[in-house]
Design a binder for these strands. Structure first.
Lengths: 221, 221
DNA sequence: CTGCTATCATACCAACCGGTATGGATAGTA
DNA sequence: TACTATCCATACCGGTTGGTATGATAGCAG
């Protein structure tokens, strides 16, 4: 069914410049190609032949840089999580002084961008789909992506006592989780074609919940 | 790596009773076995030989009931979603009259059970992981599982105007999404071994958000 | 008893898999 | 110029894949 494609876009892959100068570039070629093929096909359905074709490289070259398919997969997941997503959290401190409505808007905007990035949706599918076979990779994803965002939101609520949040970590989870689950069923699972729920509606509801009842919270029990 | 197991639990599979009476039972044997193997290994890593062994059936018998691997996969996903999860929503009407705190407790309890069911976690991994290759199956899952639960919560908030929920669907999503995303990163991705966040904390925070600020909501903007 | 259908066991198929071997071409280094 | 390391192309390996063919066995309907 999924027969080996005759590698249609192949000849233009190897960098024409500095082809032999830097031996590191071969590895990068392989990683870049592997990212594409793994994200598109998943782990098991990805063949090393296809990765080699996509990289414009012979199969043996891959095995001179990576021990086997599993190590190549681990390398590309680490590349995608640690080295890329790390950069996204450089500008976090100024967020702490924002008004709650603005802060939630910022989170919302960040998720809106992620939700429309097909490659991020594929990474999410891959992490969830392979999380039982590769639990250590799922752990990397949790640490570098999920907990990072959650800690940021937790710190925000901790530094805003006027919001009367009794459990800042739980509140951070509700905030982030609302957007993550929205991405999951609207985009990853394709639910927006069945019923659309706009990010803005979730954002507005969250703002109302967090801000409007702030001074009356925790009085009942 | 994953060599063909020699079908250790094989001889006790075929029903000793009414073996020939009901031709439907063969199909059920196959579906039951396929559910197990697909959930454990994913789509691509599942081999028809292994399904046949698990079912105590010859491979050709599978192909006399299902056109190919894809159709078998579709059949087992439909079995898992439509025919099983449907039953879980028979006792919904009495929920509408519950107090908000009790209602949220009920939702929380339902998710707690799901979170500790390894087979449900595997179904979730499978649906998310294959959602790009099998979008129509993801749609079934969205309709029968996700939207069903969401409509229930939406109806609840609609029938409780004293809670002052301006957008009941968004509120329902925040409620359900908080639990779904908790299941995702705590259980599916194994994050609870890195940092535990108890369901009860999320439940309590949700109750506080929804109930404590009810009469003061929507006055600010 | 006579088909008919469903299943059995086994063997087979071409294609593809992950991974390796060989041997030649090319480049940087000394 | 000689050495070394990298990469090329190709071919190969045993094993597995989804799927089929053959021919035997057994139960059921007429």
């Amino acid at each position: 069914m999924t027969a080996e494609l005759p590698s249609n876009t192949n000849e233009l892959k190897p960098d024409t410049e500095d082809k032999r100068a830097h031996p590191r570039s071969k590895r990068d070629q392989i990683v870049t190609a592997a990212i594409k093929v793994f994200l598109e096909n998943g782990y098991k359905a990805t063949s090393m032949n296809r990765v080699a074709d996509q990289a414009g490289v012979i199969k043996a070259t891959i095995y001179s840089h990576f021990k086997d398919k599993e190590q190549l997969f681990i390398a590309i997941i680490e590349e995608l999580t640690i080295k890329k997503i790390d950069l996204n959290y450089e500008d976090i401190e100024p967020l702490m002084v924002l008004a709650p409505e603005v802060f939630i808007d910022q989170i919302s905007n960040k998720f809106s961008v992620l939700m429309d990035d097909p490659d991020y949706l594929r990474l999410f599918r891959l992490m969830v789909g392979e999380s039982e076979r590769f639990p250590e990779l799922a752990s990397i994803y949790v640490k570098t992506v999920i907990l990072r965002g959650m800690d940021l939101a937790t710190a925000y609520f901790d530094s805003h006592p006027e919001l009367n949040i009794a459990d800042s970590a739980a509140m951070a989870h509700i905030c982030a989780g609302s957007f993550v689950s929205l991405m999951t069923w609207q985009q990853v699972l394709g639910g927006k074609k069945i019923r659309t729920l706009e990010v803005e509606r979730v954002t507005k509801m969250l703002k109302t919940l967090i801000c409007d009842g702030a001074q009356h919270r925790g009085k009942n029990q």
